[in-house]
Design a protein around this nucleic acid. Sequence first.
DNA 1: CACCAGATCCTCT
DNA 2: GAGGATCTGGTGG
Length: 202
Amino acid sequence: MTIEEYRDRIISSKFYENYPADVARQVLGKYLVRVIDGVILVGKIVETEAYLPFGDDAAHNARGKTRRNRSLFQSAGRAYVHTMRQYCLLDIVAEGTDDPGSVLIRAVEPIEGIEIMKTNRCTDKLLKLCSGPGKLCQAFAITRDFDGFDMTSRDAILFTADCNAPIPMDQIVASTRIGISKAKDKLLRFTIKDSPFISHPS
DNA sequence: CACCAGATCCTCT
DNA sequence: GAGGATCTGGTGG
């Protein structure tokens, strides 16, 4: 598809104005699109995690608003990009404003711009190009500059697009979130069943 | 200013 | 599954 065709399918803020756990499931199968100098990178979202506005000790908003997490308190559909060690991680604000929840994009299946992704990642291994939140940000050249970026505007250079039929509920697996030390028991990680492109495949 | 805890990744075993 | 590399923001003195 062309850039314009992806833009015609851009997901609006309305989609993200819902409970993060629901958004995290519903965004599976959608496309993450990045435009760099007129060239597009596209990945199909295959793994997400939800972080809740309230009662979630693992969420970055659990101890209030700081300089780091301020983007969480903006409107739904904006990016919350933060760093973990030397990597960037991409969240999309869900609910938003007074309910600072988000959906972490943990893995995508590379669809378009794969050679550029390989260059950005310094690897040829397709299965490991975007199989983790830090990896996909590296592949898509998503930096801190995108923190607070509106992913729902018509001229966005980073956005989500709806190009496929929804993933059936029985093809979605819920599990515990990766890499956290608090609220380990919550089933807020969602993957597309049997996708080889997820992080920590079983 | 120092310390430390991370929503990670990669390379082994 | 474990350990090390390596960076930044939040917290407390």
